[in-house]
Structure formats: C-alpha cells, structure tokens
C-alpha cells in the first residue's frame, strides 16, 4: 500500500504549498467545529458536543501541516534557487484532462439523464476513440469500429449482468 513512495521526492516548495492548503483546511474545520451547538442542556456536560471530535482531528491536522511547512522551509523551500516542481508533460496533461473530462461527462452528466446502457456505450466509445485516435490514420477505421463494438457490448453486458443477473439497480 505504499503507493507512490518509490517515486522521487517532491520539491520542498510543493510541500510548503500543500502545508498552507492543509493548514487552511484545519483552521477552517476548527472554526466550523467551534460554531457547532454544544447541547449542554440535553447532555448536562457538553461532552457529547458534535464539534469535539472534528475539532480534535482538525487541530491535529493543523499542527501536522505546520510541521510539514516547517520541514519544507528547513529543506530550502524559501531559498531563491529551490527546485521547482516538474510540470506534467504536454502529453500527460492531455491524457489526464481527456480521461477526467470524459469521466465527469459520463458519471456527472449522462448517467441518470439517458438510459444507462446508452450512456455507458457513448462513454466507452468516446474514451477508446479519443485515446486511440493519435495512433495515426493507418487502421483508424478498424479501431473505431472495434471501439463501437466494445462500447455496445459493454453497455449491454453491464446492464444485463448487474440488472438481470445480480439484481443491482442501475442509475
């Protein structure tokens, strides 16, 4: 579960910016927790106040983010020549943007508005076509036809398997 721990460490400036955002979240949640009612009349003690636990978590988060920020500063985040974070390559950004956009369009817009099999088929076709388009004009038509077949099969099979066999309600 170490996830990405094997990758190169981030520049300290990124950690400093992250710490600032986390500190803002921690302080914001502390303020919201403080404003929650204490229900002293009901409980008699106020110890079951809804804000206690999130307030505790937010305080720890704020302290940890300060530590992260201080560590980033000690590692040179404020020095003039501190290394900058490497931006994603243009190709990476394009691929990520495409995947994220299509995902949000599908799950956030299409699903629930058009029949599920149709939404799924449209999404799978668009996704596959978008990522296989840059492979060049040779064989493009075949790839698009395959994408369409895959899309229809996915839409139909997912609907069939979940709704008919496993009796799971679909959006």
């Amino acid at each position: 579960m170490s996830g990405n721990s094997d990758r190169e460490p981030l520049p300290p400036r990124v950690d400093l910016a992250t710490a600032a955002v986390l500190l803002a979240i921690g302080l914001g949640v502390m303020a919201l927790a403080w404003r929650m009612p204490s229900f002293v009349e009901q409980s008699g003690t106020g110890l079951t106040a809804p804000g206690i636990v999130p307030g505790f978590h937010a305080t720890v988060l704020a302290v940890l983010s300060v530590l992260l920020g201080l560590r980033a500063i000690r590692r040179g985040a404020l020095k003039a020549g501190a290394p900058q974070s490497r931006a994603w390559s243009g190709e990476d950004a394009r691929q990520l943007g495409t995947a994220a956009l299509l995902g949000v369009l599908y799950a956030g817009v299409l699903v629930g508005r058009v029949p599920f099999w149709m939404a799924t088929s449209l999404f799978v076709f668009a996704f596959t076509a978008a990522f296989e388009w840059p492979a060049g004009p040779v064989g493009r038509v075949r790839r698009l036809v395959e994408a369409a077949v895959l899309a229809l099969a996915t839409g139909g099979l997912v609907t069939l398997v979940f709704e008919r066999i496993f009796l799971v309600r679909l959006p």
Binding site: G103, Y106, F123, F127, T128, F131, F162, V168, P171
Partner: peptide, 15 residues
Amino acid sequence: PRSRLMPIVFTLCTV
C-alpha cells in the same frame, strides 16, 4: 490496451 480496459473499469466504478 488500457484505452479499452479503463473505460470499462470506470463504468464499474460508477455502478
């Protein structure tokens, strides 16, 4: 290819 697998995975995530 991932371009054919990942949209199916995303669909399953949504379901």
